[in-house]
Amino acid sequence: MGEFNVNHPILFVLVGIILAVVLAQSVYFLVKSYRRAKAIGMDMKKIKKTILTAAIFTIAPAISIVVTVIVLADSLGLALPWLRLSVVGSLSYETVAAAGAASGMGTTLAALADNMNASQYVSIATVMTLSIMVGIWLVPLISKRLQKGLVSFEQKDKRWSDILQGSLFIGMISAFVGYVFSDVSRLWLSEGGVYTVTEKIQQTGETVSVNYTSTSGLVPVCVMAVSAISMVICGLLMKKLGWKWLNDYALPICMILGMASAIPFTALLGGKI
């Protein structure tokens, strides 16, 4: 097989096979649910729009996942981050797991970057795989019972069941609203307009201290405001002008507007110094 390196062709073949199966699962469920929608007489025009909306909506987040793959590829090679972020993973999980495995071996990802051997690679891949392996088997184990419970619950008290569903959504959204405000405290915690934090470098897992402007924590808040106001405007256009078509594109449009606004806001309010 030749000497190991983190970008050895055989690694890409293995990852390719796994991802082909994952892709097949998605296609299988798409076809299955599409056929069922047809069979029970759902509005197929609307279903087709759902497909288009989901595809458009996914583009920007998917590109940001590619950025993550590029970041992690510096130390782990391309194949492993490609696998981990296509299946189950997310940036924060994977970086911490990889860095944890490296430190368990008495080293750091940075030190391993140029000369990782197969044993170290296997150890890191094992930790990354086992760490996130919960949902994949727990869903088959409990989701059926969980859903049956919810359905029988709904039959008992329809009104509370609707409120419960709304509460689930709001609960998740509220955590992310809080998240957006998490760095606002830099405004009063800064000294001389500079806020210093110790941060983990994503590529290596090393900690370094980084300086931010005191107003940098306002950038996500402003971005969220732009995106929220855009959504309100979309809502008004749909209601007042009858632009029903906008319904399918409103979320991706507002998200892109918000992301684009981050460029001038970051220039204005600052970020890393």
Partner: peptide
Amino acid sequence: QLLPALFGALG
């Protein structure tokens, strides 16, 4: 700023 942009609109 992907997440703030996403959750602003969805929120």
